[in-house]
Amino acid sequence: MDIFSQIRNSSQWVFYLFGLIALLAYPSFANNFFVFQIGALSLILGMIALSLTLLAGYGGMVSLSQMSIAGLAGYFLALFGESNAVQSLQLAPIIAVPAAIILATLVASFFGLLSVRTEGVYTIMITLAVGVATFYFVQQNYVIFNGFQGLSGILPPTVFGTNFKDPVPFYYVSLMCAVLAYVFVVSLIRSPFGVALQGIRDNPRRMKALGYNIFLHRIVTHSIAGALAATGGVLLAWFNGFVSPGIVGVDAMINILIIAVIGGLNHPIGGFVGAVIFILLQNFAIDLVGSDRFRLLVGCVFFLIVIFSPNGLIGVGSKILNWAKKRPKASEDKMGMEVIKVDDV
């Protein structure tokens, strides 16, 4: 039942090995723009989307406030650590970073507490409401959050002469966090907690009748997802160098949902796949269709994926794999049909 035996038993480990090698080697053949703006940002947003995958895909709780948690972690980092904010405590990163993540995790637990007694669309509405409240709060509070200007001068530390603001070191820090988060989530969903979480998603009433405290389970999941989102939020604050209300705005909240859904909510890799697609579209589609049509394009991609593959791009991938496996048997000219039918639940 442990993840490593699972990886060893299947052919997946080849996929993991090559994936990891490719990610490690990526900076040696990509330029700084691709390493930083595309690579690192995809990993960061992928992590935040991963926290939503855990909540929504495995816990059945579609939360829109994951970006709020990430954004707040960035704010807390600016307030605790070194930044231009006059109210900052200017603590060393070794204290400021964990403090920011812990505080944001507490906020996530509180948001969880507010939402876990709701189901389905009501969960979405409550988390949207707390997210919007967060946005207005940081925008209108000047004493701590400095209103619409936000807080700036947030810099990653320099360790042993390596400046982690430089694209390649920053990429590797992001990669390390993302891989750890990914491995953690993959093993979490196979753990007793994870099996229980999926049980609660599918059948809360039955889980109660097996002795589980389902509200506690959901709140803890919010805390875990909060810690993941907060870690992404710290990286995002370093990436941008500042935090402002826009980072926790409704657009940003929805973007995380779009990323997670595009990638696929039924596997932890989905958030990262979605993030890469989203970031590529954001950077290059603007040149093709213009910035005002970017949202329309993202909307169309979202629409197509939701219609044709409820499991996101991951779903498309596994359909193609399944189809390739079945190919020798069904080699008639029904190809198109096959791809859509296989595994379509």
């Binding site: 229980a196 889980m207 097996l210 803890v220």
Partner: peptide, 30 residues
């Protein structure tokens, strides 16, 4: 009221764990 998408083993496992103190454990069991 079964967990339709989980295996028989995971269904039973969920029941075995439900009444145990370690039901919130986040690490896989040996």
């Amino acid at each position: 009221l079964l967990f339709k998408d989980l295996t028989v083993r995971d269904n039973i496992f969920a029941a075995v764990r439900g009444i145990k103190a370690g039901r919130m454990k986040v690490l896989p069991l040996s």
